[in-house]
Design a protein around this nucleic acid. Structure first.
Length: 687
DNA sequence: TTTCGGCGACTTTTT
DNA sequence: GTCGCCGAAA
């Protein structure tokens, strides 16, 4: 098979680049993954590079799997020796191999975010700090932020007592992690980074080994990830970074597009290859996306084009209420479906999860099947986390987090009091080490764990899992619980997962790491023909025949919180760009004049992003006449209608919330807030 | 120890 | 509007 067949000139240039570092700016739908995998195939097949010398890194397990699958389809080689995976997966692999040099116990465990938060809470309590003043979530964010900057507690610059306390919590948190032999996600990266930095032998070993580092979604890398890559690359490796600054929508979690410019500098990149030919969308859709993103000042600059037809115009619908918006969408979905578009080729996108409810409701009433992405993943479910906690205890009873999770689940009469006194006692050592000889119930628990350990020692993984689920009492607990059937099914599924799990070393350790690193699918009911509902964030990387972008209102999209953040609006605009470029053939944009949010009705003006799309690309499907808005609460003859957009010389733009009689209106001003105005004096202008 | 009710939060998300 | 957490009552 010819690797280059069917590639366009720019793609071929990227795939066949000589051995020096490169940055590939790959626009939406420009065949990014294809270029990445073709590059790997080209290196191996045409350049005689050994799979052993290649490291390819992605952000998500899904992307890593897809890359692996595509490469195996292209090359008849065993890709085992290749390091393909997520940043965290590869760091985990490295740390397992060199746990001693990294200062970790051989069978260290990985905490997911929820585990981490629980530990932060414990630390704050144990330091007798007020969790109102030191919200655990915020501290978790602080700790992760520091680690992603490569900072340890002693590196934190302390300039006030608040930061001092944060640093102390960070410090205590680290001590606790070390004591329990657990690491959080950020720690995987930081440890791996420090290992390479300090250990010259290992660093040189890996630098000599990996001649090619390929990075997917480079715009999403944070500082630490970039530093890790830089260290791994050394002087001789060639970096092949693929990314799109216009699709950077994760700055809020530390992604730094500045890394693209740093890469250019650090690796003396001569030319940036731009992949601008789009194979996904019709012309009008691309023109709209291009016009929108041009409003962003900080870009590397790129313009998508297609050889495809212009296609249909975009369709815009402004509904009086969110309910009517949903009804309109449902009607259009019906029409599309009867025209033969499969439901699962239709996506309904929104900015925030809270918006899905109205849409779900309308779809449900119309008996259209739908699937909502988001929600709990398999390994995050309560019953699964409980079972995993027992497994962790079997493996390492000093894991306080696991012990606390299940010491009284199923209930065995060990309440808050007993746990508190145990914690007071343990001070500096593990809870397990102090569990015996305090009370009959605690002894019974200790005996239970001990006998579970014995029952599991030497047993194969699936049997261990089954034993633990049985002996712990989880099974009988859910058997007696009224809605426990699903949970029991999930526990069975966990045994299945263990049975099909392939490991190279200690099966239990690897299974537990797998559970933390790969929390499983976020959706259920795969395979059925159903409309896809998701946030714009989760739609990244996907494409659909028809896409509805709903809730295009100021305050929602762009989200109001983004207005005060530096670069916030630009990130929202990139998000909008991602939303638009998901559509292949048909793109609907909609908004509502009034919307139920957080239990109260809001009146918002249409999103500024709508104005940034050239009119001639858009077909306006009946802007709801103001006459159709719900009648004003009172005042039959008020000159203003609820929901009308107005301008006040002093307060600026706003929306009419209510009318009182003929001369009073309540207006929600964007800047000045909500005010009652006497029309006799206020000079309101319609906009 | 469990359960129930009140209160506050509430953008996006992967590992 | 709804979820989750915390504190008080059963």
């Amino acid at each position: 098979m010819d690797i280059l067949a069917g590639l366009n000139p720019e793609q071929i240039e990227a795939v066949t680049l000589p051995h020096h570092s490169a940055l590939i700016l790959a626009g939406a739908g420009s065949g990014k993954t294809r270029v990445l995998t073709s590059r790997i195939a080209y290196l191996i097949q045409k350049q005689g590079v050994s799979p052993h010398e290649i490291l390819a890194v992605t952000f998500t397990n899904k992307a890593a799997k897809e890359m692996t699958a595509r490469i195996s389809a292209m090359l008849p080689i065993n890709i085992r020796g290749m390091w393909i995976g997520t940043f965290h997966g590869l760091c985990n692999r490295m740390l397992r191999a060199h746990h001693r040099e990294a200062g970790l116990p051989e069978t260290f465990q990985i905490m997911d975010s929820a585990d981490q938060l629980a530990m932060v809470k414990r630390i704050i309590k144990s330091l007798n700090l007020d969790d109102e003043k030191y919200p655990p979530k915020q501290l978790q964010h602080f700790i992760n932020g520091q680690k992603e900057e490569g900072l340890r507690p002693h590196d934190v610059s302390v300039y006030d007592t608040f930061t001092r306390t944060q640093q102390e919590i960070f410090s205590a948190y680290e001590a606790q992690c070390n004591r329990e032999g657990v690491v959080d996600f950020a720690e995987l990266l930081l440890r791996s980074f420090e290992l390479l930095k300090r250990n010259e032998i290992l660093r040189e070993h890996y630098q000599a080994r990996f001649k090619h580092l390929l990075i997917d979604e480079f715009q999403d890398t944070n500082r630490l990830q970039y530093q890790w890559l830089k260290l791994l690359a050394g002087k001789n490796a060639a970096i092949f970074a693929v990314g799109d600054d216009d699709q950077s929508i994760y700055a809020f979690r530390g992604a730094d597009t500045g890394n693209m410019r740093e890469l250019e500098r650090d690796f003396h990149i001569r030319d940036i290859i731009k992949l601008e030919q789009n194979y996904r969308s019709h012309g009008n859709i691309l023109d709209a996306a291009n016009a929108l993103i041009r409003h962003n000042a900080s870009r590397l600059g790129k313009n998508l084009w297609t050889s495809d037809a212009r296609g249909e115009k975009l369709r815009f619908y402004q509904a009086p209420t969110d309910l009517q918006e949903a009804e309109y969408i449902v009607e259009e979905i019906r029409a599309l479906h009867s025209d033969g578009v499969p439901l699962n080729d239709i996506a309904l996108l929104y900015r925030s999860n809270a918006q899905s409810r109205v849409l779900e409701h309308a779809l449900f009433n119309a008996s259209l099947s739908y699937r909502v992405y988001g929600g709990l993943r398999f390994f995050e479910r309560q019953e699964i986390k409980h079972a995993l906690a027992y497994l962790r205890l079997v493996h390492n009873p000093d894991d306080d987090g696991a012990l606390l999770r299940v010491i009284n689940f199923p209930a065995r009469g060990i309440g808050a009091k007993s746990i508190e006194s145990l914690q007071a006692d343990a001070h500096g050592s593990s809870l397990w080490s102090k569990a015996r000889g305090k009370s009959r119930k605690l002894d019974e628990f200790a005996n239970l764990i001990e006998s579970m350990r014995q029952a599991c020692s030497g047993a194969p993984l699936p049997e261990t899992v089954e034993t633990v689920i049985g002996m712990s009492g989880l099974k009988s607990h859910y058997l007696h619980e009224k809605d426990g059937e699903d949970r029991l099914e999930n526990l069975d599924e966990l045994v299945n997962a263990a049975a099909t799990f392939e490991s190279e070393g200690d099966p239990l350790v690897e299974f537990l790491s797998h559970a933390a690193l790969e929390a499983g699918e976020r959706q259920s009911g795969e395979g059925t023909d159903a409309v896809q509902l998701m946030t714009v964030h989760s739609a990244k990387g996907l494409e659909f025949h028809a896409v509805f972008v709903s809730g295009l209102e100021e305050g929602l999209f762009p989200h109001s919180n983004s207005r005060n953040e530096a670069g916030g609006i630009e990130e929202e605009r990139r998000l909008m760009y991602v939303a638009l470029t998901r559509a292949r053939r048909r793109l609907y944009l909609s908004c509502a004049q009034s919307r139920m949010l957080h239990g109260q009705t809001n009146y918002n003006i249409p999103s500024r992003f709508l104005k940034e799309i050239p009119e001639e690309l858009v077909q306006i499907i009946g802007i709801a006449a103001f006459g159709e808005t719900p009648a004003p609460v009172s005042g039959k003859k008020s000159p203003w209608r609820i929901g009308a957009n107005v301008f006040h010389p002093k307060f600026g733009e706003g929306v009419v919330l209510a009318c009182e009689g003929i001369d009073q209106v309540q207006v929600n001003f964007r800047r000045a807030g909500t005010k009652w105005l006497a029309l006799e004096y206020a000079n309101l202008i319609a906009i």
